[in-house]
Nucleic acid binder design. Structure first.
Length: 939
RNA sequence: GCGGGCAUAACUCAGCGGUAGAGUGCGACCUUCACACGGUCGAAGUCACAGGUUCAAAUCCUGUUGCCCGCACCA
C-alpha cells in the first residue's frame, strides 16, 4: 500500500488535523513529580482576556512553544503554563463601551451588577485568544489554565497584599498621581504615553499686591491658575532679585501668593524666567511646593470639572474652564499674548485621554528593598537576562526605582483587602473579611473601594499559577521556572515585578533565564498600530485572507476602504502591486519565519517575502518526502530494519550526509541552548534544502534506481533516517507539517520516546541529537571534491552558454588515486548532474585545444566541445579565474612575507597560509597554461 | 539633558580577531522522471568616517557623523 501525497503542500488540509490528536493523547500534560531536576517550565506571559491574537503573541508563542516542544521531546517534564490576565482598565473600558451602546453607564448598574456583566462578557469572548494560540500550534498544559481573577490567583493576591502590609512594604499615602478622567482611575507612571503635540503657550501677568508693577508668566494650562500657590524665579536672576518675597495678587481669588526663588524649577533663559507654581497639578511644582512648604490646592473634581476652589469657574469641565480663564484674563487686562508651542502631552494609552496630575490617596509598594534583591539576583547570576544588552537598562531602572502605585479606581480587579472603621478611622487589613475594627473593635467597617493594579496579580503569576500560597507539588516541581520569555517592552512592567515578588515570597528567583524579544513591525520598520493602518492579524497569514479583509483589519473600524488600502500599501511596499491578499501560509510557515529572527533584533520587520520562503520550505519538506516515500516501501515489510547501517557498509555520500546531519543537530542544539532560534532554523533549512535535497537526493537517485540491492538497502535506510531526523529537528518550529510527514514514514525508521517507549506522535518522539550520527571529515572532504567537480563543470556550461540540450562530454584528469576512485564511483552522478553525455577519468596530460577548463583540488575538469565553445568567452572566463586567483595569492604572499606573522602568529595560521599559497600557485599555473592553449586556438 | 543601542551587497539582517555570509531581489539559462512554492549559473560590499591597539581588525579601543530606543523634560 503506497502512501500518496498531493503535488503541493496544503497547510489548510493538514494543520487542523493534528492538534486535536495531540490533545486527545494528553501529550501536553506535565506531571507534578516533585522532581525539579527533570522539569522544564515556562509561564506564559498572560495575554489580556480582552485581546485577540496579534503578531507579538504569535512571536512569543513561536519562541516559547519551540523551546517547550524541544524540551518535551528530549524527555523533560515540560510545563508550559497557560492563562490570561483580567486586564483591569482595558476590560472595564470595553464593557463600559458596550454598556454605553445600551445608553447605560457603569454607575447606573452599580458595582455588583457591573461586575456580573464583566464576568458574563469574559465567559463569552474571553476564550478567544487561547483558541487562537491553539491555531498556532501552542502546546501548553491546558488542564492547568489559570486566570488572574480565579479563586487560586485571587487567594494569592490577597495573601501577598496582607503580607507586604504586615511587613511594612505596602502603605497608603497621598501623592501626585496621573488621573484619567475618561477611565476614572489613576494609572502608573509606566503606563503614561507621552507624545509631542502642538499646544498654546499663554502668557499673563500677576500684579504685585503692593501695586509695584507685575510679573509675567506663561502656561499651557491656564485653568491651573486657580490652584497656583506661588510664582517662582531663579535666585540669581537680576530682573527679579529685588522682588523675591513680595506678594502677588491672584486674579480670581481674594488672596495673594509669594514670589519665591527656586533654582531647580526655574530656567532663567526660558520665557520671562518666571514660573507659576501649581503644586497640586504638576509634578515639578509638587516637588517645588514640598521644598518651599507651599499650600497644595486641588482645583479639579474626579470627573474633570473645576471644583469649589475654582471660584466662579466651579463646575466647568477642564477644557471649558481653560477657555473661560483665558477670556476672563483678557477682560481683566492681564493677558499678555500667546504663541504656538510644541509640548509633550501625557495621555492614557487605552482611552487616549489627557491625564491630569492630581493629589489623591493611593496604595503604594515600597519598592526599594525589593528592587535591591532583584538587582542582586541578576548580578549574582541567579537569573540571567538575554540578550545581555538589556542588563544595563535593568540596572538603571531598578537603581532609580520609584514606589509602585498599586491602587486603581476600577471595579474589575482584586478589591483591596483594607477596611476603614467608620468610628475611629483605623485601617484593618486582613485575609478574611473582618467583622471588627482592629483598633477599636467597632463593626462599622467599609472596604476600600479600589482594586489592585493588574500587574500586581501578574507579578505573582510564576508561583500563583502553581498553587502558592499553598505548598504544592507543582511548586516543588516547577519553581523556579526555567525561562521567562517576553517582549522587552514589559521588562519593567512585569519581569522586574515578578522578580521582586518571586524573591520576596518564594525566597528564590522566579526564573533562571529571561529572554527578551523585539517588536514585530511592518515592512518599513514602523511599529504596528491601527492608527498607522499596518496591523496584520497573524491568523490572516495562517489561513490566508482577501486583500479587503487584510486591509480592514489593519485599520481602526470605520476607516474608508481606499484610504486604508493606500496606507497599507505604503507600509508593505512588497504588496503595492498585489491585489489578491494573503495566501494561506500556514501556522508552520508563520512560526518558522518568526523563529528566523535573532533575539537581539529590537525590531522584526515583517517581510512577507521571507514568509513566502518559509511556506516554500514547508512545500520542499513535503515534496522531498513525497519523492522518497516510494523508495522506502521495503522498510514497511515485517521485521524490516530501519536503523542506520554500519559505517563500513556506507558510501562516502552516505557518511557525508550523516556527518552533515550530526553537525546540523549540534547547531540546533546549540541554538536552542543559546536561544538562537535563528541559528536553529538556518541550520536545518540549509541541511534539508541545500544538502539533503540538492545533493544527497540527487546522488542517491542513481543508487535507488539501480540494481545493487545491498547498496539500495543501505541508501534507503540512510535516506529514511535523514528525513526522519529532519522532522524531529524541525518539529519544535513547524509542528504540523513535520507530524504529518513523520506519520507517513515507515514504522521501522520512526524514533521512539526518549525513555524507549513507543511514540505515537512525533511531538513526543526523542529529539534528534548530534550524538546519534558520526561526524566524518574524510567523507566531507570527498564529497566536497565531487561537488567541486560538478560545480566547475556547471560553471563552464553556464558561463559559456552551453545549453542543456547541447551534447557535452567531460574529461576529468587527476594523478591522485583516491580522487580517481571517487570520480569512478560517482561517474553516473557527475554525468547526470552536469548533463554530460560522456565522461572520461584519466591521468594529467598535455592541455587539449578548444576546451572549457577548470581546476578543482588539483584535478582538472575539461569540457572538450570545440563546436560549442567560443574561445573568446572561455579565455575571458579563464582570465577572470586567474585574476581572482592572483588576488588571493597576492594577499596570501603578503601575509607570509611578513616576518612578524611567521614569528608571532599561531603556528596553525602560518601553516594554513602556506598550504593555501602552495595550492594557489599550483592552480594558477594550470589555469595559465590553459589560457595559453585557448589563445592558441583563437588565433 | 541623562542613559542605552545601531551603522556590513539594492532590501532585511547574520558574523564580532585570522582571505566578506544568508535570504530576498537582480541578470541569464532550464519546464531533465519530488517540488516553477522548482533547478543551474552569474553580477553585486574600500563591512559609516577618522585615528589607535595587534603579526593580523568588519570584528577590540578612542573620537566624529548619521539614525533609533528608553528615562527626564521648558513653564
Amino acid at each position: 500500500m503506497t502512501i500518496e501525497l498531493s503535488k503541493a503542500y496544503d497547510p489548510t488540509d493538514v494543520e487542523p488535523r493534528w492538534y486535536a490528536e495531540w490533545i486527545r493523547a494528553g501529550h501536553f500534560a506535565a506531571q507534578d513529580t516533585g522532581d525539579a531536576s527533570n522539569a522544564y517550565s515556562i509561564a506564559i506571559p498572560p495575554p489580556n482576556v480582552t485581546g485577540s491574537l496579534h503578531m507579538g503573541h504569535a512571536l512569543f508563542c513561536t519562541i516559547q512553544d519551540s523551546l517547550v516542544r524541544a524540551a518535551r521531546m528530549r524527555g523533560r517534564n515540560a510545563l508550559w503554563q497557560p492563562g490570561v490576565d483580567h486586564a483591569g482598565i482595558a476590560t472595564e473600558v470595553v464593557v463600559s463601551r458596550l454598556l454605553a451602546l445600551e445608553g447605560k453607564s457603569r454607575k447606573d448598574l452599580g458595582r455588583e451588577a457591573f461586575l456580573q456583566r464583566v464576568w458574563q462578557w469574559k465567559e463569552q469572548s474571553g476564550g478567544r485568544i487561547t483558541e487562537q494560540l491553539r491555531k498556532m500550534g501552542a502546546s501548553p498544559d491546558w488542564s492547568r489554565e489559570r486566570f488572574t481573577m480565579d479563586a487560586q490567583c485571587s487567594a494569592a493576591v490577597r495573601e501577598a497584599f496582607v503580607r507586604l502590609y504586615e511587613e511594612g512594604l505596602i502603605y497608603r499615602g497621598e501623592r501626585l498621581v496621573n488621573w484619567s478622567v475618561a477611565a476614572q482611575t489613576v494609572i502608573s507612571d509606566l503606563e503614561v504615553d507621552r507624545a509631542e503635540e502642538d499646544g498654546e503657550l499663554f502668557s499673563f501677568a500677576y500684579p504685585f499686591a503692593d501695586g509695584s508693577g507685575e510679573i509675567v508668566v506663561a502656561t499651557t494650562r491656564p485653568e491651573t491658575i486657580l490652584g497656583d500657590t506661588a510664582v517662582a524665579v531663579h535666585p540669581d536672576d537680576p530682573r527679579y532679585k529685588d522682588a523675591i518675597g513680595k506678594q502677588l495678587k491672584c486674579p480670581f481669588h481674594d488672596r495673594t501668593i509669594p514670589l519665591i526663588a527656586d533654582s531647580i524649577l526655574v530656567d532663567m533663559a526660558f520665557g520671562t524666567g518666571a514660573v507659576k507654581v501649581t503644586p497640586a497639578h504638576d509634578f515639578n511644582d509638587y516637588e517645588t511646593g514640598k521644598r518651599h512648604g507651599l499650600p497644595f490646592i486641588n482645583v479639579l473634581n474626579l470627573d474633570g470639572t473645576i471644583n469649589a476652589e475654582g471660584s466662579r469657574f466651579a463646575g466647568l469641565p477642564r477644557f471649558e474652564a481653560r477657555k473661560a480663564v483665558k477670556k476672563a484674563l483678557n477682560e481683566l487686562g492681564l493677558a499678555r499674548g500667546s504663541k504656538q508651542h510644541r509640548l509633550a502631552i501625557a495621555r492614557e494609552a487605552r482611552t487616549n485621554d489627557v491625564l491630569e496630575p492630581m493629589l489623591l490617596p493611593q496604595w503604594y509598594v515600597h519598592a526599594k528593598p525589593l528592587a535591591d534583591k532583584a538587582l542582586a539576583a541578576v548580578r549574582e547570576g541567579k537569573t540571567t537576562i538575554e540578550p545581555v544588552e538589556w542588563v544595563k537598562t535593568w540596572e538603571h531602572w531598578l537603581t532609580n526605582i520609584q514606589d509602585w502605585c498599586i491602587s486603581r479606581q476600577l471595579w474589575w480587579g482584586h478589591q483591596i483587602p483594607a477596611w476603614y472603621c467608620a468610628k475611629c478611622g483605623a485601617v484593618t487589613v486582613a485575609r478574611e473579611t473582618p467583622t471588627a475594627c482592629c483598633k477599636c473593635g467597632h463593626d462599622a467597617l467599609e472596604q476600600d473601594s479600589d482594586v489592585l493594579d493588574t500587574w500586581f496579580s501578574s507579578a505573582l503569576w510564576p508561583f500563583s499559577t502553581l498553587g502558592w500560597p499553598e505548598k504544592t507539588k507543582a511548586l516543588e516541581t516547577f519553581y523556579p521556572t526555567t525561562v521567562m520569555e517576553t517582549g522587552y517592552d514589559i521588562l519593567f512592567f512585569w519581569v522586574a515585578r515578578m522578580m521582586m515578588f518571586g524573591i520576596h515570597f518564594m525566597g528564590e528567583v522566579p526564573f533562571k533565564r529571561v529572554l527578551l524579544h523585539g517588536m514585530v513591525c511592518d515592512e518599513r520598520g514602523e511599529k504596528m498600530s491601527k492608527v498607522k493602518g499596518n496591523v496584520i492579524d497573524p491568523l490572516h497569514l495562517v489561513y490566508g485572507a482577501t486583500l479587503d479583509t487584510v486591509v480592514e483589519a489593519a485599520n481602526p473600524p470605520g476607516t474608508p476602504a481606499d484610504n486604508a488600502l493606500k496606507k497599507f500599501k505604503q507600509c508593505y511596499p512588497s504588496y503595492a502591486e498585489k491585489t489578491e491578499g494573503f495566501p494561506a501560509f500556514g501556522a508552520d510557515a508563520v512560526r518558522f519565519y518568526l523563529a528566523t529572527n535573532p533575539p537581539q533584533a529590537k525590531r522584526i520587520n515583517l517581510q512577507l517575502r521571507q514568509l513566502e520562503r518559509a511556506k516554500n520550505f514547508a512545500n520542499k519538506l513535503w515534496n522531498a518526502t513525497r519523492f522518497a516515500l516510494p523508495y522506502l516501501e521495503p522498510l514497511r515489510a515485517d521485521g524490516a530494519d530501519g536503523s542506520l547501517p554500519p559505517a563500513s557498509a556506507m558510501s562516502p555520500a552516505d557518511r557525508w550526509i550523516l556527518s552533515r546531519l550530526a553537525l546540523t543537530a549540534q547547531e540546533v542544539s546549540d541554538g536552542l541552548e543559546g536561544f538562537r532560534l535563528d541559528e536553529c532554523t538556518t541550520a536545518v533549512r540549509r541541511f534539508f534544502w541545500d544538502e539533503l535535497c540538492d545533493w544527497y537526493l540527487e546522488i542517491t537517485k542513481a543508487v535507488l534506481n539501480g540494481t545493487d540491492e545491498v547498496a539500495k538497502d543501505v541508501t534507503r535506510r540512510v535516506l529514511a533516517n535523514c528525513i526522519e531526523s529532519s522532522m524531529r529537528l524541525l518539529h519544535p518550529f513547524m509542528p504540523f507539517v513535520t507530524e504529518e510527514l513523520w506519520q507517513k514514514l515507515p514504522d521501522a525508521v520512526r524514533s521512539k520516546r526518549r525513555d524507549g517507549r513507543p511514540a505515537e506522535h512525533l511531538c513526543v518522539a526523542s529529539f534528534a541529537e548530534a550524538s546519534e550520527f558520526a561526524r566524518d571529515e574524510a567523507a566531507e572532504r570527498e564529497i566536497a571534491f565531487v561537488q567541486g567537480v560538478i560545480t566547475a563543470a556547471r560553471n563552464i556550461r553556464g558561463e559559456l552558454g552551453i545549453k542543456p540540450k547541447d551534447a557535452m562530454t567531460l574529461i576529468l584528469r587527476t594523478d591522485d588515486a583516491a580522487q580517481r576512485a571517487l570520480l569512478d564511483r560517482y561517474e553516473a552522478q557527475v554525468k547526470s548532474l552536469t548533463i554530460a553525455h560522456g565522461l572520461t577519468v584519466e591521468a594529467h596530460g598535455p592541455k587539449p585545444k578548444g576546451v572549457g577548463y577548470a581546476v578543482v583540488d588539483g584535478a582538472e575538469v575539461i569540457v572538450p566541445l570545440a563546436g560549442l565553445i567560443d574561445p573568446k568567452a572561455e579565455a575571458a572566463r579563464l582570465e577572470k579565474e586567474i585574476a581572482k586567483g592572483k588576488k588571493d595569492l597576492e594577499k596570501c604572499s603578503k601575509v607570509l612575507s611578513n616576518e612578524n606573522f611567521i614569528a608571532r602568529a599561531a603556528p596553525e595560521a602560518v601553516q594554513s597560509a602556506r598550504d593555501e599559497q602552495a595550492a594557489l600557485v599550483a592552480r594558477l599555473s594550470k589555469l595559465e597554461e590553459a589560457l595559453v592553449v585557448v589563445r592558441d586556438a583563437e588565433s
